[in-house]
Amino acid sequence: MNKIIVALFSILLLSNCTQVIDIDLNNSDPKIIVEGSITNEAGPYFVKLSKSVNFDQSNSYPPISNAVVTISDETIIDTLIEIKSGVYQTQRIQGVIGKTYKLNINVNGEVITASSTMPDLVPLDSITFLISEFGRGNNEKIYVPIPHFKDPISSGNSYRFKMTVNDTLDKTFFVDNDDLINGLEYQRPLFSNDRELKLGSTLLVEMQCIDRAIFDYFTSLNSSIGNGPGGGATPSNPTSNINGNAIGYFSAHTAQRKLVIVK
């Protein structure tokens, strides 16, 4: 809402002025950040461990080395190998649809756990484009991709899309679910905050079927970084599926891709 108001007053040609300011923010103890996933594609899979820093420090996040990291299903406990500082790689476990995976991390005695179930794969049919001239005076057209697929009859499906535009990953976290469209044709445009698609752009769309906890994680992440609708919500840490003194996510999901050229 605040964004709309600010935009509105720019429209009204009134002086709204934005300025970089110095602000004195509190320090916080470094928090352990977990990013881990396992998919139905062939391994290996990775878990990344890092630490948070204070706001006024530079954007380099110390990796956490020498942690003991395992991913397990009912039969296998796979201990991950640290391939570079803070990045851990699986050795033999293979992601399978429908299975539940457990993540276990031990950082200097601090135990962190998570679990995630890989949902069924919903096939992505095609990508089309919505042509928008929204808020633009010149004739430049913006292309917004629309993934098309049929949401299954059973309710509770959640999706995540990753867009790579001309080899650069779009930083927007696109997540959605079937609460309002269960069993129907999916055709919602992916509005990006980061990249713009123009005629001739190359677009790689990765569609993931994620579990509800991961949907909740990215939705709350979006609302806390102001990417969510409205943008004015009281910010808070996203609801994480990680147990223990850490935040982040561990996601078992399916993955499929489509490469298209905007024309």
Binding site: I23, L25, N26, V53, F55, L169, K171, L221, I225, T234
Partner: peptide, 22 residues
């Protein structure tokens, strides 16, 4: 509520909050 720290998720800077309306 302002952040008291920050971290990174998939290349995007995310802010870390410790206290509501602090």
């Amino acid at each position: 509520t302002f952040p008291s720290g920050k971290y990174n998720i998939e290349g995007q800077t995310v802010y870390y909050y410790t206290e509501r309306n602090g």
